[in-house]
Every structure is written in structure tokens, then in C-alpha cells.
């Protein structure tokens, strides 16, 4: 599903973000990407999402060989990857419903189908009662749920999560991760960058630990600390 072969990423200012990363993530896996800030977790996700290109090495996502695809194919790659963020990245002037529907409009879905799928996914995340609210009227956890709903509304095979619980209280964080495992159970590969020790230890999954741009540990059902 996701394969990285000897990936290096250097920034123009000489900073080495990733060094010799080789990693295979299979279909329907749930992987925690852990490590301190600056370890390269976000960079890794950005490379998978192709919002940045590796300096060297090869990345294969689903059926896409990232070094070979043209810029105009990137949108199609992204339609098979859902992405959620610490800061939600919602459109402030649009309702909950519109924020989610937007993702499907972009893919030229017919209106009826959009309606059906958006309602379905909002039910899944538990926001069906609040679909006409504006994002700022909702709590952080609820906003994160909108973001999740938007990311999975078209049933992408991969869901990338960049510190999804970074701004949330522990209870809400639990709720969000429960939701992510539920999504994982629906045949979606989930890669979640986090430094929330409680969650990693509380819901054990495969753990990939990073430090200074390198993978230090890759362990099935591992904890936050080895």
C-alpha cells in the first residue's frame, strides 16, 4: 500500500529532514508514527501526500510511483489519500455539511450522491445533528471530526493523520482515536503521527519511532517507549 525505499529529504537550507528511510505499510494496517518534534514525522507524511518531493529514493503509494507521476496527476493521487491535521484546515465561512461536501464537489460527484455520502459519513463521526452549523460554533473535537469526515467521505484506501489529537483534551483525544480505529476497521490504512504517549500505550498498534530523520524502531503492538 505504502512503500518507501531509501528515502532522503534535505531542505534547501541544508537541514536534513529524513535520512535513509525504508518502510513498508501494508493494506489495512494502523501505524503510529512517533517521535519528538522535528523527528521528521510530518515531513514523511508530506512526502506520502506528495506535497513535498524526496531528494532521493522512491515512494510507491497504491498504484502510484511518486517520482514518475506528473503534477497534473497529483490530484488523483490525493483522492486516494485522506489527510487530517492538528489545526483541522476547515473552511470558516461554510457549514459543516458544505465543508465535507466540498471534497466530493471537487471530484465531480453528482449532487444526490454527495448528499447521501456526506450524511452517511457525518453519522459515522456523530455530527449528523450539527451539519448546518459553522465550524467556529463547534468544539475542537467536533471540528476534528469534520476534518475526519471530509478526509474519508470518498472512502480513500489511506488516511494520514498529522497530530490529530494535538490540540485536544485527553477524553476527546480518546474519542478521536476510537473513531480512527473504527475507520481502520472499514478497510482503510491509517498512518497517525503523534506524540501522545497515553494513546500509543492505551491502544497498541504497530509503532514506527523516529528521531532526527531516522527510523529508530519499528515494532508490532509496541508502546511509546521500548
Amino acid at each position: 500500500m505504502i512503500e518507501l525505499k531509501q528515502v532522503h529529504k534535505n531542505y534547501d537550507n541544508g537541514h536534513v529532514a529524513l535520512e535513509d528511510i525504508s518502510l513498508v505499510i501494508g493494506r489495512n494496517e494502523f501505524v503510529y508514527l512517533i517521535g519528538p518534534s522535528g523527528a521528521g514525522k510530518s515531513t514523511l507524511l508530506k512526502l506520502i501526500f506528495r506535497s513535498e518531493l524526496p531528494t532521493s529514493g522512491e515512494i510507491i503509494i497504491d498504484r502510484f510511483l511518486l517520482s514518475r507521476i506528473a503534477n497534473r496527476q497529483v490530484p488523483y493521487l490525493r483522492r486516494s489519500i485522506g489527510m487530517i491535521f492538528q489545526d483541522y484546515k476547515l473552511l470558516p465561512r461554510r457549514t459543516v455539511y458544505e465543508n465535507v461536501a466540498f471534497a466530493l464537489s471537487v471530484m465531480h460527484f453528482p449532487r444526490k450522491k454527495i448528499r447521501r455520502q456526506v450524511c452517511h459519513v457525518l453519522e459515522l463521526v456523530g455530527l449528523e445533528q450539527k451539519m448546518d452549523r459553522m465550524p467556529h460554533q463547534l468544539s475542537g473535537g467536533e471540528q476534528q471530526k469534520i476534518c475526519i469526515a471530509r478526509a474519508i467521505v470518498n472512502n480513500p484506501p489511506i488516511l494520514l493523520c498529522d497530530e490529530p489529537t494535538g490540540n485536544l483534551d485527553p477524553d476527546t483525544s480518546w474519542e478521536i482515536v476510537q473513531l480512527l480505529t473504527k475507520i481502520n476497521a472499514r478497510q482503510t490504512t491509517v498512518v497517525m503521527a503523534t506524540h501522545d504517549t497515553e494513546i500509543v500505550d492505551g491502544i497498541p498498534k504497530r509503532v514506527v519511532a523516529m528521531e532526527k530523520g531516522r527510523i529508530m524502531r519499528d515494532q508490532q503492538l509496541g508502546g511509546y517507549i521500548e
Partner: peptide, 13 residues
Amino acid sequence: EEISIMRLVGATN
């Protein structure tokens, strides 16, 4: 911001 979100969810140019 809107444009970057559009790109995020796979909008073509």
C-alpha cells in the same frame, strides 16, 4: 487557504 484545502482534497488545477 481555500485553494490549499481544495488541493488537499484532490482538486485539479
